[in-house]
Computed example of a mutant assay.
Amino acid sequence: MELPVEWSWLIALGAASLAGLFYLRMNRQAEEERAAPDPGNAILEFGRAFPEEAIRAIHATEDGGAFFVRLHDERVGLMLSRGAHYACYRFEAGQIRLDHAPDAQTLAIIFTQFDKLNGLYHFSTSEAAGDVSLWLLGSFRT
């Protein structure tokens, strides 16, 4: 039994549509994964820059552009992600000032030694912002 020509075109069009939808869905999932902050990658990059430092905790900003790291000796690290390039910094706790921020999830940070890092850092939760503020002010004790 042979299908009419109209059915062949319909089947081919349906298969092409399904393939296109599958490709778009996979592409969207890959973009979402790339956009999500990756603390594992941040730990590796910070470890390359400062191999002697032990990391106790890490928090990413909401956009994944910055990772704040609490180090073993009460110091604080910062890793900025700019595409495939990373910049890692290490600060003494208490050498950083916090300014008034617009909400509980945002920190207005003033780095006294690195003016180019000054700005607003927005976190996904107020708890993460609170943790980082305690690290930066040097008042986090366990």
Rank of each mutant, 00 (worst) to 15 (best):
M1D: 11
E2Q: 08
L3I: 09
P4E: 15
E6H: 03
W7A: 11
S8H: 13
W9T: 11
W9V: 08
W9H: 11
L10M: 15
G14Q: 10
A15H: 05
A16D: 04
L18F: 03
L18S: 14
L18D: 09
A19R: 03
G20D: 08
L21G: 14
Y23I: 05
L24I: 09
R28S: 15
R28H: 12
Q29F: 04
Q29I: 05
E31F: 06
E32W: 04
E33I: 05
E33P: 00
A35N: 10
P37I: 14
N41A: 09
A42F: 13
I43G: 00
L44Y: 14
L44D: 05
F46E: 03
R48P: 00
R48W: 05
A49F: 03
P51N: 03
E52N: 04
E53G: 07
R56V: 07
R56W: 03
R56A: 06
A57H: 11
A57Y: 05
H59L: 07
A60Y: 08
T61L: 14
D63M: 03
D63R: 00
G64L: 09
A66E: 05
A66L: 01
A66R: 06
F67R: 08
F67Q: 05
F68M: 07
F68E: 04
V69K: 02
R70E: 14
E74G: 10
E74N: 15
R75L: 07
V76R: 07
G77A: 02
L78M: 10
L80H: 02
S81T: 08
R82N: 11
A84T: 09
C88K: 12
C88V: 10
Y89I: 01
R90V: 13
E92G: 12
G94V: 08
Q95W: 03
Q95C: 13
L98Y: 07
D99I: 02
D103N: 09
D103Y: 04
T106K: 00
A108H: 06
I109W: 00
F111V: 04
T112A: 02
Q113I: 02
K116E: 07
L117K: 04
N118H: 12
L120R: 13
Y121F: 15
S124T: 11
T125K: 06
T125H: 13
E127F: 11
A128K: 09
A128W: 10
A128G: 11
A129Q: 10
S133C: 10
L134G: 02
L134M: 04
W135V: 15
L137D: 14
G138E: 11
G138P: 00
F140C: 10
R141P: 08
